[in-house]
């Protein structure tokens, strides 16, 4: 039997990788992919908690379903915004979009 800590540590590793990616990457698409990694980590945690701590209730699983739903909406919207950004500024790198910087 796999202890719950294994799943939680895997989730922590994925989340830390996502944080690193969000901060280190320049391209908006790569940042979005790192955000997806973090969402996956959250889903793993939700399902692990649901399976180990409250097996008779499905709250964790329901939350994971909603995480996936919202993530799908978020990806569609974010990619449309990136597309607009590219058409207006001819770049998808977040550090080159600095019109608001003083």
């Amino acid at each position: 039997m796999i202890p719950i800590q294994h799943f939680l540590v895997l989730g922590a590793i994925l989340f830390a990788l996502g944080v690193y990616g969000v901060l280190a990457r320049r391209s908006a698409v790569l940042i979005l992919m790192s955000v997806e990694l973090m969402l996956q980590a959250v889903s793993i945690n939700f399902i692990a908690f649901a399976a180990y701590l409250a097996p008779q209730e499905f709250r964790g699983l329901i939350f994971a379903i909603f995480v996936i739903t919202i993530a799908a909406a978020e990806v569609g919207l974010a990619l449309a915004i990136i597309l607009r950004l590219f058409r207006n500024r001819a770049t998808a790198n977040v550090d080159e979009v600095d019109t608001l910087r003083w």
Binding site: L8, A12, I13, F15, A16, L17, V19, Y20, G21, V22, L23, A24
Partner: peptide, 12 residues
């Protein structure tokens, strides 16, 4: 980013 990611991983 590397420092922050490692710190977060260690904390978690």
């Amino acid at each position: 980013a590397f420092v922050l990611g490692s710190a977060l991983l260690g904390l978690l």
